Amino acid sequence: ALNRGDKVRIKRTESYWYGDVGTVASVEKSGILYPVIVRFDRVNYNGFSGSASGVNTNNFAENELELVQAAA
């Protein structure tokens, strides 16, 4: 299972961040479909780089994520 702070690569092909590595911000335990919230260094097309207006978190299912580096 994934944990907060883990570095993960995104495998959801239609995602803006496909192939990117993000950090797990939190994992919901309530049984929702996309329980893993991942935070990225770059914002998506809703904002400009360096601006706070873009979105830099997204929810994924565990099977859409590949663990790159476990949290220390």
Rank of each mutant, 00 (worst) to 15 (best):
A1L: 13
A1K: 13
A1Q: 14
L2V: 07
L2D: 01
L2M: 05
L2N: 00
N3Y: 10
N3P: 00
N3E: 09
N3V: 11
N3Q: 12
R4G: 05
R4N: 08
R4K: 12
R4L: 13
R4I: 14
G5S: 01
G5K: 03
G5V: 02
G5F: 04
G5N: 04
G5T: 02
D6L: 02
D6Q: 02
D6V: 03
D6M: 03
K7M: 09
K7I: 11
K7Q: 09
V8E: 02
V8Q: 00
R9Y: 06
R9Q: 05
I10G: 01
I10C: 13
I10H: 02
I10E: 02
K11D: 04
K11N: 09
K11C: 10
R12M: 08
T13F: 13
T13C: 11
T13A: 13
T13I: 14
E14V: 14
E14I: 06
E14A: 12
E14T: 13
S15M: 02
S15Q: 00
S15W: 03
S15R: 02
Y16Q: 06
W17S: 01
W17E: 00
W17M: 01
G19Q: 10
G19E: 06
G19Y: 03
D20Q: 08
D20K: 11
D20M: 08
D20H: 07
D20T: 07
V21A: 01
V21S: 00
V21W: 03
V21H: 02
V21P: 00
V21N: 01
V21Y: 05
T23I: 12
T23Q: 05
T23D: 03
T23W: 08
V24C: 03
V24Q: 00
V24N: 00
V24K: 00
V24D: 00
V24E: 00
A25R: 09
A25N: 06
A25W: 12
A25I: 15
S26K: 14
S26W: 12
S26N: 12
S26P: 03
V27M: 06
E28S: 11
E28I: 11
E28L: 14
K29A: 11
K29F: 07
K29E: 12
S30M: 07
G31D: 13
G31R: 03
G31L: 11
G31H: 12
G31E: 13
G31N: 15
I32L: 09
I32F: 10
I32Q: 15
I32T: 14
I32C: 14
I32V: 11
L33H: 09
L33A: 14
L33Y: 05
L33F: 07
L33I: 08
Y34Q: 07
Y34R: 14
Y34P: 04
Y34A: 06
Y34D: 04
P35D: 06
V36H: 01
V36M: 01
V36T: 00
V36K: 00
I37S: 09
I37G: 03
I37F: 07
I37E: 12
V38D: 00
V38Y: 00
V38F: 01
V38E: 00
V38Q: 00
R39D: 06
R39Y: 10
R39F: 13
R39V: 15
R39K: 13
R39T: 12
F40R: 00
F40A: 00
F40M: 03
D41C: 12
D41E: 14
D41K: 06
D41Q: 08
D41T: 09
D41R: 06
R42G: 06
R42Y: 05
R42H: 09
R42N: 12
R42E: 10
R42S: 07
V43Q: 05
V43H: 08
V43C: 15
V43M: 08
N44V: 07
N44I: 08
N44D: 15
N44E: 11
N44G: 05
Y45L: 15
Y45H: 15
Y45M: 15
Y45G: 14
N46S: 10
N46P: 12
N46A: 07
G47L: 05
G47H: 10
G47T: 08
G47P: 15
F48N: 15
F48V: 15
F48Y: 13
S49C: 15
S49Y: 11
S49L: 13
S49F: 09
G50Y: 07
G50N: 11
G50S: 08
S51V: 10
S51M: 11
S51A: 13
S51W: 06
A52C: 15
A52K: 08
A52S: 12
S53E: 14
S53Q: 13
S53G: 11
S53R: 03
S53P: 10
S53I: 13
S53M: 12
S53V: 13
G54P: 09
G54N: 05
G54T: 05
G54R: 04
G54L: 11
V55N: 06
V55I: 13
V55A: 07
V55D: 08
V55W: 06
V55F: 09
N56A: 07
N56P: 04
N56M: 07
T57R: 05
T57G: 05
T57L: 08
T57S: 08
T57M: 11
T57H: 12
T57P: 04
T57E: 11
N58C: 15
N58H: 15
N58E: 15
N58Q: 15
N59L: 05
N59D: 05
N59G: 13
F60Y: 07
F60R: 01
F60M: 01
F60I: 01
A61C: 06
E62W: 13
E62S: 07
E62L: 11
N63R: 08
N63D: 10
N63S: 14
E64L: 14
E64V: 03
L65T: 11
L65M: 02
L65Y: 02
E66W: 02
E66F: 04
E66G: 02
L67G: 01
L67T: 02
L67M: 06
V68S: 01
V68G: 01
V68T: 04
V68F: 04
Q69R: 09
Q69Y: 09
Q69A: 11
Q69C: 11
A70R: 14
A70Q: 11
A70C: 09
A70F: 08
A71S: 10
A71T: 09
A71W: 12
A71I: 11
A72Q: 14
A72K: 13
A72V: 13
A72P: 14
A72E: 14
